[in-house]
Simulated assay, not measured.
Amino acid sequence: MKHVSGLLLVGLAAAGCQTAPVADSGFLSRYDGLVAREDTIRASVRQRRDDAEAARIEGVYLEPAVLVGSAGSGLSEPEKAMVLREVDRQICYEVSERFTLATATPGTARLRTGVVEIRPTGAAGSGAAAIANMLIPGPGTIRVPGTTGGLAVETELLGPDGQQVAALAWARRANTVGTDTPSLSRVGDALQLAEPLGDAVGDTISPEDRAVRPIADPDPCALFGPRTQPLGFVTRLVTGLYVPEVNTGSAPAEAGTPRP
């Protein structure tokens, strides 16, 4: 059985190559200067940063993520809202470890984020993959080719004068072999990919010499729920599935809750 598992992993590995870049959506204030990273294995990453300007910024206001163009077409309003919230959540966690989260006041740096593509997850294929992963033990997970979802996002840091200081065009599709867990939700893969997106945003907008800082107390991202989801880990382990309700901890924020 282990031999069969190994053959499957090798046979599907070719489908886990780097995601192709997504066309510019027009969301960013400028695209010149974006440089494609060649050292990424799974994601398409194009980015730029003015280190001198980024070093002068301490406080950042996080604008809520928005859908751009036809992103999310075919998805329900709750599904689209869930993806936007998870993108906001993961970006909030990462940015808060490098900058002070500020309110929207004149002269404050802003981070704008646009979701430019949400590729739905194939539920039937995910169910089959979950069963297969239970029956064929091995490292990582095996997904059904052609049923994996994806996420593409553009984000930019604007300085107090409104000029672009840093920008990122990021896209990734869930791998057929790896750590992207199957999900019966059509946005299961997009939700999972929000976490590496958040990492990429934090790295892109931060000056190279800026260290990750301890989480402030109280946590400025508390409105999104706790940063760790132990129940989500257990659910994945027992069922082999990513379940948004327990993996994101994303119960809607109370009405009137101010954003960081």
Rank of each mutant, 00 (worst) to 15 (best):
T113R: 05
R227Y: 02
T147D: 06
A13G: 14
G72L: 03
G150I: 06
Q163T: 11
S5I: 08
T100N: 14
D217V: 14
P160Q: 13
V45W: 03
P230H: 10
G125D: 05
P207T: 11
P145Q: 05
V115Y: 01
L101M: 08
R173W: 05
V83G: 03
G225N: 06
D180H: 00
V95Q: 00
A43M: 06
P207R: 13
A253Q: 12
K80Y: 08
E53R: 15
A190I: 10
A104C: 11
M1H: 10
C92N: 02
L193Y: 05
A129N: 01
L223W: 09
D88C: 05
L151G: 03
G16H: 10
L241W: 01
L193R: 01
G178A: 10
P137H: 07
K2I: 15
V187N: 03
Y93W: 12
V165F: 03
P120D: 14
D209M: 14
G162P: 11
S76A: 14
T176K: 01
S126Y: 10
V35A: 15
G72S: 08
P260Y: 13
G232I: 08
T19W: 04
A20R: 15
Q90P: 03
N247D: 10
R186Y: 02
V187H: 01
I205H: 02
G240R: 00
Y93M: 12
I118E: 06
T179D: 12
E53H: 07
V234W: 00
V66R: 15
A71W: 04
Q192L: 03
